[in-house]
């Protein structure tokens, strides 16, 4: 170890002082884009006529492996938009604390009412914020972009006789 070595080392440090940065700071504001099928928190949607799509059939409640969905069905009534008689959902709660994001409730929904969202994370300061009530679920519809999957698309994709479903499905190139 001579004096020239020390100066060489100082030289390296000095050069690195003015080198452009190779690391990027952690992005705080923007979020990375998620895949089309990415699934996280839930939303209830309105159908094409503007009615609440959920008919209160309790299929999601039955299939949920964690038993976190509670649906209360309402009486049958005529829709104000179409005039047809149909079932309504009186109350819907989903406890996101115990959700394992298995997508089974989305698959079994006959009305395509429940969908999952492509938001990355939704933390809360209180456990009650993770308890999704009906109001929160309908508010989520406008909050973020929905995931690709809904009940009929998932069913169409898995149908033994059927061709591959539209929207993100289908045989790729190469």
């Amino acid at each position: 170890m001579s004096l020239s070595d020390s100066f060489a080392a100082f030289g390296i440090g000095f050069r690195n002082l003015f080198r452009p940065k190779v690391t990027a700071p952690l992005p705080w504001k923007e979020r990375r884009p998620r895949a089309e099928r990415y699934r996280a928190t839930f939303a209830l949607v309105h159908d094409a006529h503007g009615d609440e799509a959920c008919i209160g059939c309790k299929m999601c409640e039955k299939i949920c492996p964690s038993q976190i969905i509670v649906v209360t069905g309402g009486p049958k009534a005529e829709s104000p938009n179409t005039g047809k008689k149909r079932g309504w959902c009186a109350d819907f709660t989903l406890d996101l604390n115990a959700c394992i994001a298995c997508e089974l409730c989305v698959q079994v929904c006959p009305a395509d009412a429940i969908v999952m969202l492509r938001v990355q994370e939704q933390p809360g300061f209180d456990r009650n914020e993770l308890l999704l009530t009906m109001e929160k679920l309908y508010a989520n519809e406008k909050l973020a972009e929905a995931s690709w999957a809904d009940g009929s698309k998932l069913i169409a994709m898995q149908e033994p006789g059927g061709a591959t479903a539209a929207g993100g499905a289908g045989e790729g190139g190469a």
């Binding site: 099928r37 698959q107 994709m157 898995q158 479903a165 993100g168 499905a169 790729g172």
Partner: peptide, 16 residues
Amino acid sequence: HTVGGNRHDLPAGWDR
């Protein structure tokens, strides 16, 4: 995976 097969098909361009 599900009983009898898979639930999700390959999206376009996934194999590439």
